[in-house]
Amino acid sequence: MVTAEYVIFVTIAGVMLGTFYGLATIGLSFTFGILRILNSGHGSFVMIGAYISYWCFALLGLPPLVSSLLAFAVGFFMGFALYHGLISRVLGGPELISLVLMFAFGIFLQEVAKFSWSASPRGFTWGLGSINIFGYEYPLTRLIGGVVSAVIVLVLYVFLFRTKSGNAIRSVVEDPEGAALCGVNVSRVYALSLAIALGLTVASGALSTLFVSGGIEPYMGDPYTTRAFAIAVLGGLTSPFGSFLAGLLFGIIENLSYMLLSLANVGNPFSMTRFLTFAMILLVLLIRPQGLLKR
């Protein structure tokens, strides 16, 4: 039976999940907004983060909160390496090439993960107990995950609007040529932006284990790619904070639609929710290709 309390509970859970989705998408629109490159292998970076979190917990006993910092560092480093090794060579070329390149890199990460850690799903439980919301149990780890995601996004905001590097990044978004004329090292900004974007994405992967404690496997990223695309187009694709808000919205929608699908009893609600994600992308692109939240 659906009570008002249950709907509120599902909505609150959706807000927590949505904050996390926002974080998991922000890197995608950051890269697209600044480098004009669509990270078609986005989900694989989330997957790497989840594995980092798993191994830190399994081998060192570190909780995901700590390992997300390490995950950020790994992603940050990967971003620099990727930029100087590959991306800088295809920038300004045909869009198709950068799309295929990122797609291939995503596949590469998946295959490396499969080769190193096998394809069988792994998981761990960081048991902190749960809190009671209107009579429903909500795991404390998810609450932490939502709050930490929000804090990270806040830090990014402060970085972009209050520091010199952040200003340089924003100036490149507005006008790359103008920024270059004003003495901004555009190439450095690109590298830094990709590093930050991938750092955030990998960190979000580490935090993902707070929400879903199992199912860590090489191909777990694919649904994240689809979801992140859906969220990013909702938010207008080029705006990181638009993506964050869209993520929040998406988390709520996803949780509510899961609830409704379970009630309506049409097929497997888990798969159907994922199908609806794809349908939503098409719908948004049909109605408002510039994004729902833009202007």
Binding site: L38, T226, L237, F278, A279
Partner: peptide, 15 residues
């Protein structure tokens, strides 16, 4: 360009 890729990348997963 990229928007086309976004619209179609989920096709596989969706189906």
């Amino acid at each position: 360009g990229a928007y086309f890729a976004i619209a179609t990348i989920g096709l596989n997963e969706g189906l």
